[in-house]
């Protein structure tokens, strides 16, 4: 097939220059990843011990949305594909898992299949659905580039959002509560918040390792190469479109898994998972944490959720300050928390 990306690629701007691992991940990044995950792993015990057990669910959300942000960072920081539509996949995962759970509570069937609230079924299924949807949306959106790509992903996001709104069976735009669902993960009953946190945390660790391996594998090198100079990669004989599409679908699959986890966590299914502002917030998490660092997505999610948790008592306008802080980061410290932590003197290439 002809590659629509090749010819004009050289005219594109010089990608995202600030990816931290453009030259491959440094030892410091691996150290930071390990340290941060270690801190996160003891955080629930700490908040529980200090009598603020309600923060455990916040930490769980940090893990789940951090996973989504990390997978967005993968396409954005390494693949150079700025997606303003990743909430699509969050929603797709949520609706896959949520629909199955709904039908298991209801006793009804979904396309002839009985529902289930067993996470070992719903989560992998959501991942597969996310991958397929990623192939379709990515396949169409990657025919465009630059600003078009951003707008196309956003528009697809909105389209899927409205489709979820149309699913009257799951409450339409109101969504539906799944409070009676169990949090069964295999033989494990994760209805306890701490247990559920560690399940999600384990998933996060697994995908942190996987994505770190992927970006260093030959496949990841090609994807990174496409970001900085697509024409050259094409000249080298790579089918850039296919590599980019595969990367996009992988990211979509992981984001979709996060969506399924999120619905199991909140036990409430609604189209708000797929709202376009959710896409924007994932983007913020990536940037706050540090683009092109993978773990930055989780750090960014942590910073954002903590800010919300903190400011909810002080002001209803916390998003105003998020906006200001984001402007400061974009203009002043574009490498985010991770980059700033590790930045040293090697500032801008």
């Amino acid at each position: 097939m002809s590659d629509p990306q090749t010819a004009p690629a050289s005219r594109e701007r010089t990608g995202i220059r600030l990816g931290l691992w453009a030259r491959g991940p440094s030892r410091w990044h691996i150290a930071l990843t390990v340290v941060f995950l270690a801190l996160l792993s003891v955080a629930p015990l700490w908040v529980e011990a200090s009598g603020r057990g309600y923060l455990v669910t916040v930490l769980t959300r940090v893990v789940i949305f951090g996973l989504a942000a990390m997978s967005l960072d993968f396409v954005m920081g390494y693949g150079g594909m700025v997606s303003l539509g990743h909430a699509t996949f969050l929603g797709a995962g949520a609706y896959t898992a949520g629909a199955l759970t709904y039908h298991s509570l209801d006793g009804s069937r979904l396309l002839g299949i009985p529902g289930t609230d067993q996470a070992l079924v719903t989560w992998p299924l959501a991942t597969v659905v996310g991958a397929l949807l990623g192939l379709v949306i990515g396949g169409l959106s990657l025919r465009t580039k630059g600003v078009y790509f951003i707008m196309a992903t956003l528009a697809f996001n909105q389209m899927i959002y409205f489709l979820f709104n149309a699913l009257e069976i799951y409450g339409g735009d109101d969504g539906v509560g799944l409070f009676a669902a169990s949090r069964a993960i295999g033989p494990l009953d994760a209805s306890d918040d701490i247990v559920f946190f560690y399940v999600c945390f384990a998933v996060l660790v697994v995908f942190t390792v996987i994505l770190n391996l992927v970006v260093r594998a030959p496949f990841g090198r090609v994807v990174r190469g496409c970001r900085s100079n697509m024409a050259r990669m094409a000249a080298l004989g790579y089918q850039t479109y296919r590599y980019r599409l595969a990367a996009f679908a992988l990211s979509a699959a992981i984001t979709s898994l996060a969506g399924a986890m999120a619905v199991t966590e909140s036990q409430f299914l609604s189209p708000s998972f797929a709202e376009w502002t959710e896409s924007g917030e994932l983007l913020i998490m990536v940037i706050v944490g540090g683009l092109g660092s993978l773990i930055g997505g989780v750090i960014g999610a942590g910073a954002l959720f903590l800010l919300e948790e903190l400011s909810i008592d002080i002001t209803d306008n916390w998003q105003f300050f998020v906006g200001i802080g984001l402007l400061a980061i974009v203009l002043g410290a574009p490498r985010g928390l991770t980059g700033t932590l590790l930045g040293g003197r090697r500032s801008h290439d």
Partner: peptide, 27 residues
């Protein structure tokens, strides 16, 4: 300040403006 920056930063900065504007009109 953003003309020569990547689209990503244009998206972020103007998304920040959206957040700020939506809250500012409420304030």
């Amino acid at each position: 300040r953003l003309y020569h920056r990547d689209h990503l930063y244009q998206v972020l900065a103007t998304f920040a403006l959206v957040l700020i504007a939506n809250q500012a009109v409420q304030m």
